[in-house]
Each structure stands twice: as C-alpha cells, then as structure tokens.
C-alpha cells in the first residue's frame, strides 16, 4: 500500500543516519524484503528447516502456521549446552534480525570464501573469523578471495562482496537461484524476529486514517469555540 511505503520511507531516512555497519569488511547488500508474500516465507521456513535447524533453534516461534507447516517444531529443535562448541554454541535465531540486520544476514550468508587457516576451512567478509562453517557450500559452490587480506582490511567497506570474491567451483544452484534462496531465508528470519510486522502494517493506515478524520472534526470544533474569544479580544 502506497501509504505504508511512504511511512517506511519516512523512518528509513533516520535509519540510514544511525545504522552502523560494525565489523564488516565490505559494504552490505540491500536485502529485498517481501514479508507480505506468504509463499516466500514458507519457502524460507522450509530452507531453514532443511539446513539451519540442524544447529540453530527457533525458540520463540512455536505456534504460528508457517513455522509449523515447514516442520520446524519444538521437539526437533537442537538444544546446546552452554559449554559445547568451545563455549560458543550456535545461537537461537528467533531474534537474530534484531541483533544484526536483514542486510547483514543477506550479505553474510553469501560472503564465505575458502581460507585454509581457519578450522572450518572458510572465512567470511562480513563477519571475519566466524566460527560458523558455510552450510550452503554444496548449493553455492566455493569462492576464492581475489585480493590479499591485508588489502581488504585497509579498504574496509569500500568494496562489495561480489567484487572481491570469485566463484571457482560452482554449486548446484546458479547465482540468481542462490540469491533468491538466501533471500527466502532472510525474509523468514525477519518475519520470525517480529511476526507482528504484518499486523502492524495492516492496522497502521486504519488507525492513522481514523485519527486524521477525528482531528479534522476536533480542530473545526475548537476553531468554532475560539472564534468567540478572538472576536471579543479584537472588539476591545
């Protein structure tokens, strides 16, 4: 709805001023968000169930139909001890978008490259030295870093990930397919972090529209009363 787009634009001006990119070595891509699209959310939920649910839980999303339909149920969620994984177990992902951002995740999940010095064999441009292995290697293929790491650190935030990474062994998916695949997951994660998003957007125009109508009448009534006062004031 046009009204909603304007409202979001209004607030996103502020977002661009305040948003910090953190530790990322590259500029973040803009994640195409399309939360209203239920089919895409369900696709994302199914990808999540196939890949992410192996290590990550979705603790706060238990009772909504999309999550249930995708088979992400409480009984199948992994539970990690605090001390497992060297004290850094894979985090719950229900609120990950609130901590990171959709853009961060969208770029992070595609910016892995081969790095034999890492225990996982891969490194990441958005989250350098992450302990998370690349779960999409069979789908995306493997990528090589084109410039030296030192150069990368010096030019922090100057490049985009696709400018400094090169696909050297293709995976099962084409580039576009994989972008869409990751975007599906990111959309689902955005939804998961705040399922009220859809409802807020649906109620917003009605509530604000109602208040504008009320404002019209209240303001006219107020002016009608204050005309008395103004007339008397100028008579004297």
């Amino acid at each position: 709805m046009a009204f909603n787009h304007w409202m979001i634009l209004l607030f996103s001006v502020w977002a661009n001023i305040t948003w910090a990119h953190g530790e990322s070595l590259v500029e973040l891509d803009h994640a195409p968000l399309n939360i209203e699209n239920r089919d895409q959310l369900l696709r994302g939920a199914k990808h999540f169930q196939q890949v992410c649910l192996t290590c990550h839980s979705m603790h706060y999303l238990r009772y909504d139909d999309i999550t249930q339909e995708a088979g992400i149920i409480k009984e199948r969620m992994p539970v990690w001890d605090d001390l497992s994984w060297g004290g850094r177990p894979p985090p719950d992902l229900s609120l990950i978008v609130k901590r990171r951002t959709a853009d961060w995740l969208y770029t992070f999940l595609r910016a892995y490259y081969i790095d034999d010095t890492r225990p996982t064999g891969v490194n990441n441009l958005v989250w350098p030295n992450t302990s998370m292995p690349n779960p999409f290697i069979s789908r995306q293929g493997t990528q090589q870093l084109l410039i030296s790491e030192a150069h990368l650190h010096d030019s922090k935030g100057k490049y985009r990930w696709s400018q400094v990474l090169k696909l050297d062994r293709p995976g099962q998916m084409s580039g576009e397919e994989f972008d869409q695949y990751i975007d599906d997951i990111v959309n689902y994660l955005v939804y998961a972090a705040d399922p009220s998003y859809l409802k807020r957007e649906a109620y917003g125009p009605w509530v604000i529209g109602y208040l504008l109508i009320l404002l019209f009448f209240v303001a006219r009534l107020s002016m009608s009363y204050w005309d008395d006062v103004k007339r008397k004031h100028h008579m004297k």
Binding site: Y210, I213, L214, F217, V218, R220, L221, S224, Y225, D227
Partner: peptide, 19 residues
C-alpha cells in the same frame, strides 16, 4: 455558528465513541 458548533460537537462525540 451555534448550529454548526452543535453539529461539530455531536460529530466529534460520535467519532470519538467509535475510537
């Protein structure tokens, strides 16, 4: 003016009640 004011105040009350 008074007629108009009465109308406005009734309309406002009605719309406010809906709210």
């Amino acid at each position: 003016d008074l007629k108009k004011r009465k109308f406005l105040s009734q309309a406002t009350t009605a719309i406010g009640a809906v709210g």
